[in-house]
Design a binder for these strands. Sequence first.
DNA 1: TATGAATGAGAATTCATTCAT
DNA 2: TATGAATGAATTCTCATTCAT
Lengths: 220, 220, 220, 220
Amino acid sequence: MGIAERKEREKERRRQQIMLAAKRVFSAKSFNKSTMEDIAAEAELSPGTIYLYFKNKDELYASLTLRVLQYMLIRFEHVSMQRNLNSEDRIAALREAMVDIYEFDALVLVNMFRLQSSETLKNLSSELLSQIKDLSRKSLQTMANIFKEGIQSGNFADRHPMALADIALSLFSGVVLWEESKRTLNENKNYLRETLETAFHIFAKGIQRQDNLMSEKIAS
Amino acid sequence: MGIAERKEREKERRRQQIMLAAKRVFSAKSFNKSTMEDIAAEAELSPGTIYLYFKNKDELYASLTLRVLQYMLIRFEHVSMQRNLNSEDRIAALREAMVDIYEFDALVLVNMFRLQSSETLKNLSSELLSQIKDLSRKSLQTMANIFKEGIQSGNFADRHPMALADIALSLFSGVVLWEESKRTLNENKNYLRETLETAFHIFAKGIQRQDNLMSEKIAS
Amino acid sequence: MGIAERKEREKERRRQQIMLAAKRVFSAKSFNKSTMEDIAAEAELSPGTIYLYFKNKDELYASLTLRVLQYMLIRFEHVSMQRNLNSEDRIAALREAMVDIYEFDALVLVNMFRLQSSETLKNLSSELLSQIKDLSRKSLQTMANIFKEGIQSGNFADRHPMALADIALSLFSGVVLWEESKRTLNENKNYLRETLETAFHIFAKGIQRQDNLMSEKIAS
Amino acid sequence: MGIAERKEREKERRRQQIMLAAKRVFSAKSFNKSTMEDIAAEAELSPGTIYLYFKNKDELYASLTLRVLQYMLIRFEHVSMQRNLNSEDRIAALREAMVDIYEFDALVLVNMFRLQSSETLKNLSSELLSQIKDLSRKSLQTMANIFKEGIQSGNFADRHPMALADIALSLFSGVVLWEESKRTLNENKNYLRETLETAFHIFAKGIQRQDNLMSEKIAS
DNA sequence: TATGAATGAGAATTCATTCAT
DNA sequence: TATGAATGAATTCTCATTCAT
C-alpha cells in the first residue's frame, strides 16, 4: 500500500520536474522554437521519458496552463474567503493574488491563449481540456462572487458580477501581456506591480457606487 | 513613370492580398500550425511567390502587425483631433476606435506579443522592427495626449498620462484576448463590443476626478 | 493543354521511379527494415520528395501492390481472350502468365498479404484500398471465367468457377512464397518455373472430367 | 532435483504463456505494428520479463515459428504412420492435419516467410535457426514419404516425391494466406476448411495414375 | 514575375532493450 | 525472477525556403 503511494508520489514529482523544465525552456525560447529535446535536456532526462508523462508537446504545454489555473483558483478562493475585509481591500487582495500568479508563471498565463487554436485543441485529451475549462470557469466564478458581495453590501455599482470578473481578468492578462512585451522590446526593468496597482485602483474606483464616492468625499 | 507607378501600385496590392490571406490563415490556425503553403493556397498563389514579397515567415507575420499598428495610429489620431468632444465622449470615441481595430484584425494585435520572442526578432529586418517600435510608441503617445488634455481640463484625476495609455491598451488587448478565448472554447457568440463598453465605462469612471463625480451627482 | 499533359506524364514517371526504387529496397531488406531514407537514396531523391507522391510509407507500399495487381489483371485478361486455345492450353497460358507476374515483381506479391493487418489498412486512403479490392476481385473473376468456359465445354469437372480461381491463385502464391523461402534459406538457384509447371500440371489434371481422362487414355 | 524439474517446468510454462500472447498480438497487428509492450500487456507481464525468456523480438517471433513447425511435424508423422489407410485416405488425413495446423496457429505459418529477411536472420541465434531449418526439412521429408509410398503402391503417378511435398505445402500455405486475406478485407466468415477440402480433392485427383482413374470409373 | 517541384535540416515520436530495485 | 521506468537511437514525416523553368 505504502509502496503504491510512494510510487504515485514519485510519478507526480517527475511530472512536476518535467513541467518546470518545460516552463523554463518555453520562457527562454517561445513554444515553437522549443524542442522536446531541449526540454528533456533541461529536465536531465531523455526525450523518450517525456512521453511517458505527457502524450505530446501540445499536451505538455496545456498541462502548464492547467498548473497556473490551479494556482489561480487557490489564490482567488483565498481572497474570496476573507470576509472580514471591506470591498476595497478585497479588490486590493485580488490584485495581490494576481501579482502572485504572475510571479508563479508569467509567460504561461500569457501564452495560455495559444490554446485558442483549434489545431492545438484537437491534440489534447478531452479530459485535460475539460479540466482547463472547469478551472477557468471556477476561477471566474470565485472572482464574480467577490464582486457580487460588494454589490450586495452596497459598495459596488449594480453590474453583472460575471461581467466584472471577465473584465478584471482581462485587465490582468492585458497588463501582463503588455508589460512583458515592453520588457522584451526594451529590456527595461519590470513595472508590472506598479502598473497593476494603478490599473486596479482605477478599476476599483470605476466600479464603486456614486453615493459611496460622494459620502467618502463628504466625510473627508 | 506612369508605368513605374502602376507597377508599384500593383506590387502593393499583391502584398495586401498576401497579408489578408495570411491573416485569415493565422486566425484560424495559430502561427506555428499555419504553413506557408496554407497561406499561398488561401492567396491563390504558389509558395514561391510569397517569398517575392516577404523575406520569410516571421517577416510576413511582422508585416501583419505593422499593418494593424498603422491602422491603430490613424484611428487614435482621429480621436485625438476631435477637440470639440468632452473628455467622457473622447473616451467613448477611443473605445469605438478599439472596436474598429478589433474588426480590422482581431487576432494579430493579440498575437503581436509573439514578436516578444528574441528568436523571432532576429529573423526580422531592423527596418521593419524599428517601424513597429515607432508605431506602437506613437499610438501610445497619441492616447496619452488625450488623457493629458483630460487631466489639464480638470476632468481626469491627476495621473501619469502614459501610464493611463498603457492601461487602456492593456485593457483593450486583455478583453480581446479573453473574449476570443471564450469564443473558441465555447463557440459562443461574440460579446466583444458589449464587454468593451462596460470595461471602458468602468475605466472612464475610474479615472475621473472625485469632485467631478460629486458635482455630477449633485447636479442630477 | 500540351503542357498540362506533359506535367502529368512527368509526375507519373516520377511516381514510377519512386516505386521501382522502393521495390528494390523492399526486396533487399524487408518492409520494416527499409527506411524512407533508403528509398529516397535509391531513387536519388530527398526524403521529403517521396511524400509529395505518397502520403506515407504504408501507402507507398500498397501502391506497389496495386502495381502488381494491375499487371496481373492485364495478363489474366490476355489469357481469357485467347478463345482459340483448348482448355488445357489455357491453363498452361495461365501458368505462364503467373511466371511473368512473378518476374514482374516477386516479393511484392508475396508481401501483399502484409495488407492484412488492420493497423496497416487504417493508414491507407480509402481510394487506394478500394482500387486494390477492385483489382483483385476483377483478376479472380477473369480467372473464374476461364474455368467456367472449360466447364461449359465439358473439359473440366463441374465445380464452382470462383472456388477454382481462388485455389489457382492460392497455389500460385503458395509456390512463390515457398520457393522464395527456400531460396533465401539455402541460397539455391531458382526452381520457381519448374515447380509452378508441375503444380499446374497436377492442378490441370485434378480439375478435368473423368470421362475426359478416360477417353484420352482409350484414344491413346 | 524434483525442485529443479519443477522450476524447469514452470519456466517452460511461462515461455508458452508469452508465446501464446505474442501469437494473439501478431495475428491482430502484424509483426512491425506489434510492440513488445503490447505482447507484455497481453501476457500480463512486464516488458522486462519477456527478455528473461527470449533474447529479442526476432527470436520471440522465430520461436513461434518453431512451435508451429513442431506441431506440424507431429501431425504429419502421425499421418505417415497410418499405414492401414489407402492412398486417397492418407491425402485426406494430410489435409485434416493441415486444418489442425491452421487452427493451432493461422498466421505464424504464413508469416514464417518473414524469416526470409537476411536482416532478421542475423538477429537469431544459430541454434534456433538450425532447429527451424531442421524441422521444416523433416516435415517435408515426412510428407514426401507418404507420396513415395503412394507412388510405389501404384496409386500415384510417378513424380519426384519431394516436389509433391513442396507443392502440397505451397497449396496449404497459399490457401491459408489467401483465405485470411479475403477475411480481413471483407470481414467474411471463414471458408478455410471448405477451400482446403476442394483444393486437396483436386490435388489428390491430379496426382493419381491415369489407369487408376480409369479402372475406378469402369468398376463403378 | 510566377511557379511548384524539390530540398534537407530538423522535429516529434516510437519502441526494442536495459537495469536498478 | 519480475518489474517498469528510463533510455536514446532510429524513423517517419514536416515545412520553410530555394531555384530551374
